[in-house]
Design a protein around this nucleic acid. Structure first.
Lengths: 216, 216
DNA sequence: TTGAGCATTTTGATGAATCAAAGTATCGCC
DNA sequence: GGCGATACTTTGATTCATCAAAATGCTCAA
Protein backbone atom coordinates (compact mmCIF):
# COMPACT_ATOMS: atom_id res chain seq x y z
CA UNK A 1 0.00 0.00 0.00
CA UNK A 2 1.22 3.45 -0.94
CA UNK A 3 1.33 6.20 1.71
CA UNK A 4 -0.62 9.45 1.50
CA UNK A 5 2.74 11.21 1.44
CA UNK A 6 3.91 9.30 -1.63
CA UNK A 7 0.57 9.95 -3.29
CA UNK A 8 1.05 13.67 -2.81
CA UNK A 9 4.51 13.51 -4.32
CA UNK A 10 3.17 11.68 -7.39
CA UNK A 11 0.31 14.09 -7.81
CA UNK A 12 2.62 17.09 -7.60
CA UNK A 13 5.22 15.61 -9.94
CA UNK A 14 2.44 15.03 -12.45
CA UNK A 15 1.09 18.56 -11.96
CA UNK A 16 4.42 20.18 -12.80
CA UNK A 17 5.01 18.14 -15.91
CA UNK A 18 6.83 15.07 -14.61
CA UNK A 19 4.69 12.80 -16.76
CA UNK A 20 6.12 14.20 -19.97
CA UNK A 21 9.65 15.19 -19.08
CA UNK A 22 12.17 15.08 -16.30
CA UNK A 23 11.75 17.75 -13.64
CA UNK A 24 14.32 19.07 -11.17
CA UNK A 25 14.09 18.12 -7.53
CA UNK A 26 14.34 21.79 -6.65
CA UNK A 27 11.16 22.55 -8.57
CA UNK A 28 9.45 19.65 -6.83
CA UNK A 29 10.65 20.80 -3.41
CA UNK A 30 9.23 24.27 -4.08
CA UNK A 31 5.93 22.86 -5.31
CA UNK A 32 5.59 20.65 -2.24
CA UNK A 33 6.89 23.28 0.14
CA UNK A 34 9.54 20.93 1.49
CA UNK A 35 13.29 21.28 1.86
CA UNK A 36 15.46 19.97 -1.00
CA UNK A 37 17.03 17.31 1.20
CA UNK A 38 13.67 15.83 2.09
CA UNK A 39 12.73 15.56 -1.55
CA UNK A 40 16.04 13.95 -2.50
CA UNK A 41 15.46 11.26 0.13
CA UNK A 42 11.94 10.62 -1.06
CA UNK A 43 12.99 10.57 -4.71
CA UNK A 44 15.23 7.58 -4.05
CA UNK A 45 12.42 5.85 -2.22
CA UNK A 46 9.88 6.48 -4.98
CA UNK A 47 12.42 5.14 -7.47
CA UNK A 48 12.88 2.01 -5.32
CA UNK A 49 9.14 1.49 -5.51
CA UNK A 50 9.16 1.79 -9.29
CA UNK A 51 7.09 4.95 -9.34
CA UNK A 52 9.67 7.35 -10.80
CA UNK A 53 12.86 7.31 -12.83
CA UNK A 54 15.47 9.15 -10.79
CA UNK A 55 18.88 10.20 -12.02
CA UNK A 56 20.79 11.98 -9.25
CA UNK A 57 21.42 15.62 -10.09
CA UNK A 58 19.39 15.33 -13.30
CA UNK A 59 15.83 15.05 -12.08
CA UNK A 60 12.89 12.69 -11.85
CA UNK A 61 10.14 11.60 -14.13
CA UNK A 62 7.13 9.36 -13.52
CA UNK A 63 7.26 5.75 -14.68
CA UNK A 64 4.18 4.26 -16.32
CA UNK A 65 3.16 2.93 -12.93
CA UNK A 66 3.75 6.31 -11.32
CA UNK A 67 1.70 8.07 -13.96
CA UNK A 68 -1.30 5.76 -13.74
CA UNK A 69 -1.14 6.00 -9.95
CA UNK A 70 -1.08 9.81 -10.14
CA UNK A 71 -4.02 9.82 -12.54
CA UNK A 72 -6.04 7.62 -10.20
CA UNK A 73 -5.41 10.05 -7.35
CA UNK A 74 -6.55 12.93 -9.56
CA UNK A 75 -9.60 10.93 -10.56
CA UNK A 76 -10.47 10.30 -6.90
CA UNK A 77 -9.95 13.96 -6.06
CA UNK A 78 -12.19 15.24 -8.80
CA UNK A 79 -14.99 12.74 -8.29
CA UNK A 80 -14.99 13.63 -4.60
CA UNK A 81 -15.23 17.30 -5.54
CA UNK A 82 -18.28 16.64 -7.70
CA UNK A 83 -19.86 14.76 -4.81
CA UNK A 84 -19.17 17.52 -2.29
CA UNK A 85 -20.51 20.24 -4.57
CA UNK A 86 -23.37 18.56 -6.41
CA UNK A 87 -24.64 16.05 -3.86
CA UNK A 88 -23.86 17.79 -0.58
CA UNK A 89 -24.25 21.32 -1.89
CA UNK A 90 -20.90 22.72 -0.77
CA UNK A 91 -19.69 25.90 -2.48
CA UNK A 92 -17.04 25.14 -5.10
CA UNK A 93 -14.57 27.34 -3.25
CA UNK A 94 -14.66 25.08 -0.16
CA UNK A 95 -14.33 21.66 -1.70
CA UNK A 96 -10.65 21.53 -2.60
CA UNK A 97 -9.15 21.20 0.91
CA UNK A 98 -11.65 18.52 1.89
CA UNK A 99 -10.98 16.56 -1.30
CA UNK A 100 -7.26 16.90 -0.69
CA UNK A 101 -7.65 14.71 2.40
CA UNK A 102 -10.44 12.42 1.25
CA UNK A 103 -8.61 11.46 -1.97
CA UNK A 104 -6.22 9.37 0.12
CA UNK A 105 -8.94 7.60 2.06
CA UNK A 106 -11.37 6.54 -0.67
CA UNK A 107 -10.54 3.19 -2.28
CA UNK A 108 -10.73 2.97 -6.05
CA UNK A 109 -13.60 0.56 -5.59
CA UNK A 110 -15.73 2.98 -3.63
CA UNK A 111 -14.77 5.76 -6.04
CA UNK A 112 -16.09 3.71 -8.93
CA UNK A 113 -19.41 3.27 -7.14
CA UNK A 114 -19.50 6.99 -6.36
CA UNK A 115 -18.72 7.74 -10.01
CA UNK A 116 -21.66 5.60 -11.03
CA UNK A 117 -23.94 7.28 -8.48
CA UNK A 118 -22.92 10.67 -9.86
CA UNK A 119 -23.62 9.40 -13.36
CA UNK A 120 -20.02 9.45 -14.58
CA UNK A 121 -19.33 13.18 -14.56
CA UNK A 122 -16.79 14.34 -17.13
CA UNK A 123 -15.67 17.49 -15.31
CA UNK A 124 -15.23 18.54 -11.72
CA UNK A 125 -16.86 21.69 -10.35
CA UNK A 126 -13.81 23.74 -11.36
CA UNK A 127 -14.16 22.43 -14.90
CA UNK A 128 -11.16 20.11 -14.85
CA UNK A 129 -11.66 16.84 -16.72
CA UNK A 130 -12.14 13.67 -14.67
CA UNK A 131 -9.98 10.78 -15.89
CA UNK A 132 -11.87 7.55 -16.60
CA UNK A 133 -11.30 4.45 -14.46
CA UNK A 134 -9.04 3.15 -17.22
CA UNK A 135 -6.76 6.15 -16.74
CA UNK A 136 -7.80 7.63 -20.04
CA UNK A 137 -8.31 11.40 -19.96
CA UNK A 138 -11.08 12.59 -22.24
CA UNK A 139 -9.54 14.97 -24.72
CA UNK A 140 -11.71 17.94 -25.36
CA UNK A 141 -11.88 20.75 -27.82
CA UNK A 142 -11.79 23.33 -25.05
CA UNK A 143 -10.08 26.61 -25.85
CA UNK A 144 -9.85 30.00 -24.17
CA UNK A 145 -12.64 32.32 -25.31
CA UNK A 146 -10.04 34.60 -26.88
CA UNK A 147 -9.08 31.83 -29.30
CA UNK A 148 -12.58 31.63 -30.71
CA UNK A 149 -14.13 33.76 -33.41
CA UNK A 150 -16.16 36.75 -32.24
CA UNK A 151 -19.88 37.06 -32.68
CA UNK A 152 -20.87 33.60 -31.39
CA UNK A 153 -22.10 31.98 -28.21
CA UNK A 154 -20.04 29.27 -26.48
CA UNK A 155 -20.53 26.69 -23.74
CA UNK A 156 -18.54 27.53 -20.60
CA UNK A 157 -16.53 24.51 -19.47
CA UNK A 158 -13.94 25.66 -17.07
CA UNK A 159 -12.20 28.64 -15.48
CA UNK A 160 -8.44 28.49 -15.50
CA UNK A 161 -8.35 31.26 -12.97
CA UNK A 162 -9.40 29.56 -9.79
CA UNK A 163 -10.25 32.49 -7.60
CA UNK A 164 -13.65 32.50 -5.99
CA UNK A 165 -14.12 36.25 -6.32
CA UNK A 166 -13.81 36.10 -10.08
CA UNK A 167 -16.11 33.13 -10.55
CA UNK A 168 -18.69 34.63 -8.20
CA UNK A 169 -18.61 37.86 -10.11
CA UNK A 170 -19.19 35.95 -13.34
CA UNK A 171 -22.02 34.05 -11.70
CA UNK A 172 -23.87 37.30 -11.06
CA UNK A 173 -24.30 37.53 -14.84
CA UNK A 174 -25.33 33.92 -15.13
CA UNK A 175 -21.93 32.85 -16.38
CA UNK A 176 -21.41 29.49 -14.71
CA UNK A 177 -20.08 26.17 -15.90
CA UNK A 178 -22.54 24.56 -18.26
CA UNK A 179 -24.15 27.81 -19.38
CA UNK A 180 -23.38 29.72 -22.55
CA UNK A 181 -21.57 32.99 -22.99
CA UNK A 182 -21.69 35.39 -25.89
CA UNK A 183 -18.34 36.57 -27.30
CA UNK A 184 -19.37 39.89 -28.81
CA UNK A 185 -16.21 41.78 -29.59
CA UNK A 186 -12.54 41.93 -28.77
CA UNK A 187 -11.01 45.36 -29.17
CA UNK A 188 -7.34 44.56 -29.78
CA UNK A 189 -6.28 48.14 -29.26
CA UNK A 190 -7.70 48.65 -25.81
CA UNK A 191 -7.56 44.97 -24.82
CA UNK A 192 -11.22 45.04 -23.85
CA UNK A 193 -13.48 42.08 -24.54
CA UNK A 194 -17.24 42.53 -24.65
CA UNK A 195 -19.31 39.59 -23.49
CA UNK A 196 -23.02 39.05 -23.76
CA UNK A 197 -25.29 37.41 -21.20
CA UNK A 198 -28.17 35.11 -22.06
CA UNK A 199 -30.43 38.15 -21.68
CA UNK A 200 -28.43 40.17 -24.21
CA UNK A 201 -26.70 42.34 -21.64
CA UNK A 202 -23.18 43.48 -22.53
CA UNK A 203 -20.31 43.11 -20.06
CA UNK A 204 -16.74 44.29 -20.57
CA UNK A 205 -13.69 42.50 -19.21
CA UNK A 206 -9.97 42.59 -19.87
CA UNK A 207 -8.55 40.14 -22.39
CA UNK A 208 -6.63 38.24 -19.69
CA UNK A 209 -9.86 37.60 -17.82
CA UNK A 210 -11.57 36.54 -21.05
CA UNK A 211 -8.78 34.11 -21.84
CA UNK A 212 -9.31 32.33 -18.53
CA UNK A 213 -12.70 31.12 -19.74
CA UNK A 214 -12.40 27.75 -21.44
CA UNK A 215 -15.25 27.24 -23.86
CA UNK A 216 -16.43 24.76 -26.40
CA UNK B 1 -5.42 18.19 15.10
CA UNK B 2 -5.74 14.68 16.45
CA UNK B 3 -4.03 11.80 14.61
CA UNK B 4 -5.88 8.86 13.10
CA UNK B 5 -3.94 6.68 15.54
CA UNK B 6 -5.20 8.60 18.57
CA UNK B 7 -8.72 8.47 17.16
CA UNK B 8 -8.51 4.71 16.97
CA UNK B 9 -7.35 4.49 20.57
CA UNK B 10 -10.27 6.64 21.71
CA UNK B 11 -12.78 4.65 19.73
CA UNK B 12 -11.47 1.39 21.13
CA UNK B 13 -11.32 2.65 24.70
CA UNK B 14 -14.95 3.71 24.35
CA UNK B 15 -15.92 0.37 22.81
CA UNK B 16 -14.57 -1.62 25.74
CA UNK B 17 -16.22 0.50 28.38
CA UNK B 18 -13.68 3.24 29.03
CA UNK B 19 -16.40 5.88 29.03
CA UNK B 20 -18.02 4.48 32.15
CA UNK B 21 -15.16 2.99 34.11
CA UNK B 22 -11.42 2.62 34.12
CA UNK B 23 -10.09 -0.12 31.87
CA UNK B 24 -6.77 -1.91 32.04
CA UNK B 25 -4.09 -1.15 29.50
CA UNK B 26 -3.73 -4.87 28.88
CA UNK B 27 -7.34 -5.08 27.75
CA UNK B 28 -6.78 -2.09 25.49
CA UNK B 29 -3.61 -3.58 24.04
CA UNK B 30 -5.47 -6.79 23.21
CA UNK B 31 -8.38 -4.88 21.66
CA UNK B 32 -6.02 -2.82 19.50
CA UNK B 33 -3.74 -5.73 18.72
CA UNK B 34 -0.68 -3.85 19.93
CA UNK B 35 2.01 -4.72 22.44
CA UNK B 36 1.47 -3.55 26.04
CA UNK B 37 4.49 -1.25 25.91
CA UNK B 38 3.13 0.63 22.93
CA UNK B 39 -0.15 1.22 24.68
CA UNK B 40 1.51 2.42 27.86
CA UNK B 41 3.44 5.02 25.87
CA UNK B 42 0.34 6.18 24.08
CA UNK B 43 -1.70 6.30 27.29
CA UNK B 44 0.65 8.91 28.71
CA UNK B 45 0.41 10.88 25.50
CA UNK B 46 -3.40 10.78 25.41
CA UNK B 47 -3.41 11.91 29.05
CA UNK B 48 -1.08 14.81 28.15
CA UNK B 49 -3.63 15.84 25.51
CA UNK B 50 -6.45 15.76 28.03
CA UNK B 51 -8.27 12.90 26.34
CA UNK B 52 -7.96 10.28 29.08
CA UNK B 53 -7.37 10.00 32.80
CA UNK B 54 -4.39 7.71 33.25
CA UNK B 55 -3.19 6.28 36.55
CA UNK B 56 -0.11 4.10 36.01
CA UNK B 57 -0.82 0.46 36.79
CA UNK B 58 -4.49 1.22 37.48
CA UNK B 59 -5.88 1.90 34.02
CA UNK B 60 -7.35 4.62 31.85
CA UNK B 61 -10.72 6.20 31.40
CA UNK B 62 -11.94 8.77 28.89
CA UNK B 63 -12.24 12.40 29.97
CA UNK B 64 -15.31 14.36 28.86
CA UNK B 65 -13.28 15.62 25.92
CA UNK B 66 -12.13 12.10 25.07
CA UNK B 67 -15.67 10.78 25.22
CA UNK B 68 -17.17 13.43 22.98
CA UNK B 69 -14.31 12.96 20.55
CA UNK B 70 -14.88 9.19 20.52
CA UNK B 71 -18.59 9.68 19.93
CA UNK B 72 -17.92 11.97 16.99
CA UNK B 73 -15.68 9.35 15.42
CA UNK B 74 -18.41 6.74 15.89
CA UNK B 75 -20.93 9.14 14.39
CA UNK B 76 -18.71 9.68 11.36
CA UNK B 77 -18.17 5.95 10.99
CA UNK B 78 -21.86 5.09 11.08
CA UNK B 79 -23.01 7.87 8.79
CA UNK B 80 -20.38 6.79 6.29
CA UNK B 81 -21.67 3.24 6.55
CA UNK B 82 -25.21 4.36 5.76
CA UNK B 83 -23.88 6.26 2.77
CA UNK B 84 -21.88 3.32 1.45
CA UNK B 85 -24.78 0.90 1.83
CA UNK B 86 -27.84 3.00 1.01
CA UNK B 87 -26.47 5.49 -1.49
CA UNK B 88 -23.73 3.51 -3.18
CA UNK B 89 -25.38 0.13 -2.81
CA UNK B 90 -22.50 -1.71 -1.15
CA UNK B 91 -23.35 -4.93 0.71
CA UNK B 92 -23.48 -4.33 4.47
CA UNK B 93 -20.74 -6.90 4.93
CA UNK B 94 -18.23 -4.81 2.95
CA UNK B 95 -18.76 -1.39 4.41
CA UNK B 96 -16.96 -1.64 7.73
CA UNK B 97 -13.34 -1.70 6.54
CA UNK B 98 -13.94 1.21 4.17
CA UNK B 99 -15.64 3.24 6.90
CA UNK B 100 -12.76 2.43 9.23
CA UNK B 101 -10.46 4.46 6.99
CA UNK B 102 -12.89 7.14 5.83
CA UNK B 103 -13.96 8.04 9.38
CA UNK B 104 -10.57 9.71 9.89
CA UNK B 105 -10.70 11.70 6.64
CA UNK B 106 -14.21 13.18 6.74
CA UNK B 107 -14.46 16.47 8.60
CA UNK B 108 -17.37 16.91 10.98
CA UNK B 109 -18.64 19.64 8.70
CA UNK B 110 -18.86 17.37 5.66
CA UNK B 111 -20.36 14.64 7.84
CA UNK B 112 -23.14 16.98 8.90
CA UNK B 113 -23.95 17.72 5.26
CA UNK B 114 -23.87 14.01 4.47
CA UNK B 115 -26.15 13.34 7.44
CA UNK B 116 -28.60 15.88 6.06
CA UNK B 117 -28.40 14.35 2.59
CA UNK B 118 -29.15 10.93 4.08
CA UNK B 119 -32.09 12.46 5.97
CA UNK B 120 -30.64 12.04 9.45
CA UNK B 121 -30.59 8.27 9.74
CA UNK B 122 -30.99 6.95 13.28
CA UNK B 123 -29.27 3.62 12.72
CA UNK B 124 -26.43 2.35 10.60
CA UNK B 125 -26.86 -0.66 8.29
CA UNK B 126 -25.82 -2.99 11.12
CA UNK B 127 -28.55 -1.51 13.30
CA UNK B 128 -26.27 0.46 15.64
CA UNK B 129 -27.60 3.86 16.68
CA UNK B 130 -26.01 6.95 15.14
CA UNK B 131 -25.13 9.65 17.70
CA UNK B 132 -26.52 13.10 16.94
CA UNK B 133 -24.18 15.99 16.07
CA UNK B 134 -24.54 17.19 19.67
CA UNK B 135 -23.05 13.91 20.89
CA UNK B 136 -26.36 12.77 22.27
CA UNK B 137 -27.16 9.13 21.63
CA UNK B 138 -30.85 8.55 21.17
CA UNK B 139 -31.92 6.26 23.94
CA UNK B 140 -34.86 4.14 23.10
CA UNK B 141 -36.23 0.77 23.96
CA UNK B 142 -36.48 0.29 20.25
CA UNK B 143 -33.81 -1.84 18.77
CA UNK B 144 -33.16 -3.32 15.37
CA UNK B 145 -34.58 -6.83 15.13
CA UNK B 146 -31.03 -8.14 14.76
CA UNK B 147 -30.19 -6.93 18.24
CA UNK B 148 -32.95 -9.01 19.81
CA UNK B 149 -32.79 -12.68 20.76
CA UNK B 150 -34.05 -15.11 18.16
CA UNK B 151 -37.15 -17.24 18.63
CA UNK B 152 -39.54 -14.52 19.80
CA UNK B 153 -42.19 -12.22 18.39
CA UNK B 154 -41.76 -8.43 18.52
CA UNK B 155 -43.87 -5.36 17.96
CA UNK B 156 -42.88 -3.41 14.84
CA UNK B 157 -42.38 0.26 15.64
CA UNK B 158 -40.51 1.80 12.81
CA UNK B 159 -38.59 1.16 9.60
CA UNK B 160 -35.22 2.86 9.36
CA UNK B 161 -35.16 2.22 5.68
CA UNK B 162 -37.84 4.48 4.31
CA UNK B 163 -38.11 3.23 0.78
CA UNK B 164 -41.65 2.57 -0.25
CA UNK B 165 -40.86 -0.56 -2.20
CA UNK B 166 -39.44 -2.24 0.87
CA UNK B 167 -42.25 -1.31 3.23
CA UNK B 168 -44.86 -2.31 0.67
CA UNK B 169 -43.20 -5.64 0.22
CA UNK B 170 -43.24 -6.14 3.98
CA UNK B 171 -46.90 -5.18 4.09
CA UNK B 172 -47.79 -8.05 1.76
CA UNK B 173 -46.86 -10.37 4.65
CA UNK B 174 -48.78 -8.33 7.16
CA UNK B 175 -45.67 -6.67 8.54
CA UNK B 176 -46.78 -3.12 9.22
CA UNK B 177 -46.25 -0.74 12.10
CA UNK B 178 -48.16 -1.90 15.14
CA UNK B 179 -48.23 -5.58 14.15
CA UNK B 180 -45.91 -8.27 15.42
CA UNK B 181 -43.13 -10.05 13.64
CA UNK B 182 -41.52 -13.35 14.47
CA UNK B 183 -37.71 -13.45 14.57
CA UNK B 184 -37.12 -17.09 13.81
CA UNK B 185 -33.44 -17.44 12.99
CA UNK B 186 -30.37 -15.47 11.95
CA UNK B 187 -27.80 -17.45 10.04
CA UNK B 188 -24.61 -15.50 10.69
CA UNK B 189 -22.72 -17.35 7.99
CA UNK B 190 -25.01 -16.57 5.09
CA UNK B 191 -26.37 -13.36 6.57
CA UNK B 192 -29.93 -14.60 6.06
CA UNK B 193 -32.61 -13.85 8.62
CA UNK B 194 -35.77 -15.94 8.75
CA UNK B 195 -38.91 -14.10 9.82
CA UNK B 196 -42.31 -15.50 10.67
CA UNK B 197 -45.68 -13.98 9.82
CA UNK B 198 -48.68 -13.98 12.13
CA UNK B 199 -49.89 -17.00 10.17
CA UNK B 200 -46.65 -18.91 10.77
CA UNK B 201 -45.29 -18.43 7.28
CA UNK B 202 -41.48 -18.19 7.01
CA UNK B 203 -39.88 -15.37 5.05
CA UNK B 204 -36.17 -14.91 4.42
CA UNK B 205 -34.47 -11.51 4.21
CA UNK B 206 -30.90 -10.25 4.37
CA UNK B 207 -29.55 -9.11 7.70
CA UNK B 208 -29.37 -5.50 6.55
CA UNK B 209 -33.08 -5.56 5.77
CA UNK B 210 -33.82 -7.23 9.10
CA UNK B 211 -31.78 -4.62 10.97
CA UNK B 212 -33.88 -1.86 9.48
CA UNK B 213 -36.88 -3.11 11.44
CA UNK B 214 -37.07 -1.40 14.81
CA UNK B 215 -38.94 -3.51 17.29
CA UNK B 216 -39.87 -3.49 20.93
C1' DT C 1 39.99 26.44 -17.74
C1' DT C 2 38.96 27.84 -13.62
C1' DG C 3 36.41 29.40 -10.07
C1' DA C 4 31.97 31.48 -8.27
C1' DG C 5 27.50 30.65 -7.60
C1' DC C 6 23.83 27.77 -7.40
C1' DA C 7 21.48 23.27 -7.18
C1' DT C 8 21.59 18.92 -5.18
C1' DT C 9 22.97 15.47 -1.96
C1' DT C 10 24.57 13.97 2.55
C1' DT C 11 24.66 13.94 7.37
C1' DG C 12 22.90 14.16 11.84
C1' DA C 13 18.64 15.02 14.45
C1' DT C 14 13.76 15.06 15.58
C1' DG C 15 8.94 13.27 16.57
C1' DA C 16 5.39 9.79 15.90
C1' DA C 17 4.20 5.09 16.30
C1' DT C 18 5.63 0.83 16.81
C1' DC C 19 8.19 -3.70 18.64
C1' DA C 20 11.00 -7.01 21.60
C1' DA C 21 12.81 -7.86 25.67
C1' DA C 22 14.18 -6.60 30.21
C1' DG C 23 12.74 -4.70 34.53
C1' DT C 24 9.24 -3.74 38.17
C1' DA C 25 4.97 -3.63 40.71
C1' DT C 26 0.86 -5.90 42.39
C1' DC C 27 -2.28 -9.46 43.76
C1' DG C 28 -3.66 -13.59 45.50
C1' DC C 29 -2.53 -17.81 47.62
C1' DC C 30 -0.40 -20.62 50.98
C1' DG D 1 3.98 -12.29 55.52
C1' DG D 2 6.38 -14.02 51.71
C1' DC D 3 6.49 -15.85 46.94
C1' DG D 4 5.28 -16.61 42.43
C1' DA D 5 2.43 -15.51 38.55
C1' DT D 6 0.67 -11.99 35.98
C1' DA D 7 0.22 -7.33 34.46
C1' DC D 8 2.36 -3.20 33.48
C1' DT D 9 6.31 -0.07 32.48
C1' DT D 10 10.90 0.94 30.74
C1' DT D 11 14.54 0.69 27.61
C1' DG D 12 16.70 0.46 23.31
C1' DA D 13 15.67 -0.05 18.36
C1' DT D 14 13.24 0.61 13.99
C1' DT D 15 10.69 3.02 10.19
C1' DC D 16 8.71 7.07 8.07
C1' DA D 17 8.77 11.81 7.02
C1' DT D 18 10.76 15.72 7.96
C1' DC D 19 14.42 19.69 8.92
C1' DA D 20 18.94 22.39 9.22
C1' DA D 21 23.25 22.73 7.91
C1' DA D 22 27.41 20.97 5.83
C1' DA D 23 29.44 18.90 1.77
C1' DT D 24 29.60 18.15 -3.05
C1' DG D 25 28.95 18.61 -7.95
C1' DC D 26 27.62 21.23 -12.08
C1' DT D 27 27.48 25.15 -15.19
C1' DC D 28 28.48 29.42 -17.06
C1' DA D 29 31.08 33.41 -17.52
C1' DA D 30 35.35 35.63 -17.62
Amino acid sequence: MISATSENYLKTIHAIGGSEHSISLGALARALNLTPGTVTTMARQLADNGLVHYLPRRGIRLTDLGRTTAIQIIRRHRIIEVFLADTLGMPASDIHPEAEILEHAFSNHVINLLDKFLDHPAFDPHGSPIPEASGHIRTTSLKPLTQRPEGHRYLIHRFTRNDAEFTEWLATFGFTIGTTIGFHKWDRITGIVTLETAGGRRIQVGESAASSLLVE
